[in-house]
Structure formats: structure tokens, C-alpha cells
């Protein structure tokens, strides 16, 4: 329901308020930055971003391209969903490939570093090559402690780094987009959304998301207490056995690291019910990359992660 406001009391629901705030951010950036880009992972948050961007400029097309970092280990269902969105909206898709970045010597695959981590160098290189000055990211402040202090406009120096102690104060809805040569801004239009808000919004809008978010049969195996998908990219280690389970993914990322949870939730409403009683955060449950250390996200952000 694209919320026809209840005119009797001039009230907007909280979801409509969040939508209005995010649309405002998209329009500010489009007006003030020379070369914005939307970082699109194919996950639910970046789909909500695309939807908001679509609404912000309608009936005109979204006035900036979409950038995806291809880890080479992406779920095919996610890539299919990406293609479907891109073709419906008629936006330009820029793909930055980690494989290519490894071949070009931009990042080094030492066999120990995760693809997620190699994305950082690949991403920064793509931003620099294309000369993007503002990059929209789907980060939410409720995701993780290091994100709670992130600004909507998050300034990055010429090395793409985030300095949490030197952030610009952000007041009212007055965003400061000033940049020096070589610097860029990360923009987080979903800053004030929570995981539940995202799901409520997806449910309300009735828009396409990758099928792996919904419960399905999958051949999986257990590693470090997580269910991982059977895949050529994910060779089994000693003692690991594959079995078929009914599962769904709470986040989508590098499939060698992104775990799934056992679930029967095959509709958005069932997912919402599941999340409402979930006892573990989405990252804690299913993201191998955030479990290595308590401050894992903080470190990756400082280096220039999404």
C-alpha cells in the first residue's frame, strides 16, 4: 500500500516518514553531487534503496548508475534479481569484478583473505576509475555497533577511509556534501531503517527480491555452527557432510561465507513473524565475516567497506 495519507489527522505512518526522509536524501545527492552511484548488492536493503530512488525521481529515470561488486561467489538467484531490476528501471549497471581485480593485481588473493574483504579494494578502485563522487550504500545503523555512529553523508578521504573520530556533525536534514579532489562521500539513505522496517516495506510495496530469502529446499552442510550452501566454490572439508534442509537466507553475500537458517517462512509476513521472535542478529547468525572479531566491522569500515 503506497500509503494514501489519512488526511483527517495529517499523520504519516512511521514507514511513510522513513520513506519521505530517504527520498529527500536521494534528491539532495542527485542535486548536489556531480557523479553519484548506487551500490547494489542484490540484497533486500539495496532493493529498497532502488525502490526509493525510483520513487524519488519518477516519472524520470533514476539519474545515476548502479554499481555491483561481483565477488565471483554470488548466488545466481541474486544476480537474476539484479538483472530483472536493472532492466525494468532502465538504469546503467556497472559491474566491478573481484576476479578481474585479482587478475589486474589490484587486490591480492592469498587464499586466506575472504572475498568480502577483497571487495574493499575492488570497490575503491571502481569508484576511483569511474570518478564517482557519491556512493549510496544500504547500511543501516541498527545493524552493528560501528554503524550506529555513521552519518547519512559519510565522508571518505582520498584513500576511501572512514575516520570515526573526525566525522562532520550532521544537523536537522541539512547535509554537507563538500568534497576535496579525490575524496568521495558514502551516502546511507536507510540509516534510520531497521531490519523489520525493511521487511514491512518490502511487504507493503510487493516488489521482487531474490528467492533465496524465502524458505526453500537446499543442499547444505555445517561449518563453524552455520549452514552453508553446497557449491563448487565451497569444497567440503574433512568430516563435513551434505544434507537437504528447508532453509532461507537472512542476508545475501559471498556464498562461501553466508550461512542460511532453517526456516519454513515462505512469505514476507512469515519472515516478519520469524524476525520478530528471532533471538540472534542477522549478521551474528549468518555472516562469517563479522564473527572473526567483535570489532570486525569497525576495522573493515575504516578501510573503506560499504
Amino acid at each position: 500500500m503506497s500509503a494514501p495519507p489519512t488526511h483527517a489527522d495529517y499523520q504519516l505512518s512511521q514507514l511513510d516518514q522513513l520513506e519521505a526522509e530517504s527520498i529527500h536524501i536521494f534528491r539532495e545527492v542527485a542535486a548536489e553531487f556531480e557523479k553519484p552511484v548506487l551500490m547494489f548488492s542484490g540484497g533486500k536493503d539495496s532493493i529498497v534503496m532502488l525502490r526509493l530512488a525510483e520513487k524519488a525521481f519518477y516519472p524520470a529515470k533514476i539519474p545515476f548508475p548502479v554499481l555491483q561488486v561481483d565477488t565471483g561467489y554470488d548466488f545466481p538467484e541474486v544476480l537474476a534479481c539484479r538483472d530483472s531490476w536493472v532492466s525494468r528501471l532502465g538504469v546503467r549497471l556497472v559491474v566491478a569484478s573481484v576476479e578481474q581485480a585479482i587478475k589486474d593485481g589490484i587486490v591480492v588473493d592469498d587464499g586466506k583473505t575472504s572475498r568480502n574483504r577483497l571487495q574493499i579494494g575492488t570497490l575503491l578502485n571502481a569508484l576511483e576509475e569511474e570518478g564517482f563522487t557519491a556512493a549510496f550504500g544500504g547500511g543501516r545503523r541498527d545493524e552493528e555497533k560501528a554503524r550506529a555512529k555513521e552519518r547519512v553523508y559519510s565522508h571518505r578521504d582520498e584513500f576511501g577511509q572512514w575516520d570515526p573520530k573526525n566525522q562532520r556533525p550532521e544537523l536537522w536534514s541539512l547535509y554537507n556534501g563538500r568534497l576535496h579532489e579525490g575524496e568521495h562521500m558514502r551516502i546511507f539513505p536507510l540509516s534510520n531503517w531497521t531490519e523489520l522496517d525493511i521487511w514491512h516495506y518490502l511487504g507493503r510495496e510487493g516488489i521482487e527480491i531474490p528467492s533465496i530469502y524465502f524458505a526453500h529446499q537446499r543442499r547444505v552442510f555445517q561449518r563453524d555452527g552455520m549452514w552453508l550452501s553446497e557449491s563448487d566454490y565451497n569444497p567440503l572439508r574433512g568430516g563435513e557432510t551434505v544434507e537437504e534442509r528447508t532453509v532461507r537466507f537472512r542476508t545475501v553475500g559471498d556464498l562461501t561465507l553466508t550461512g542460511c537458517v532453517e526456516s519454513e517462512a515462505d512469505t514476507i509476513d512469515k519472515i516478519i513473524d520469524e524476525i520478530a521472535i528471532a533471538r540472534v542478529t542477522e549478521r551474528g547468525a549468518t555472516r562469517g565475516d563479522d564473527r572473526f572479531s567483535e570489532a570486525a566491522m569497525e576495522d573493515r569500515k575504516k578501510e573503506g567497506y560499504f
Binding site: Q14, G203, R204, G206, D269
Partner: peptide
């Protein structure tokens, strides 16, 4: 004036908390 709702959206309407502080 009310936009068309998909079946999913219709079923879903009204479940989120209404207000923001």
C-alpha cells in the same frame, strides 16, 4: 487515488508500528 495493491501488499497492510518518536 489509492494505488493498486498487490495481493501480498494487501494482506500485509497495517502490521508495522504506526508512529515514530
Amino acid at each position: 487515488m489509492t494505488p493498486e495493491m498487490s495481493p501480498v501488499a494487501e494482506e500485509h497492510a497495517g502490521r508495522a508500528p504506526m508512529d515514530l518518536l
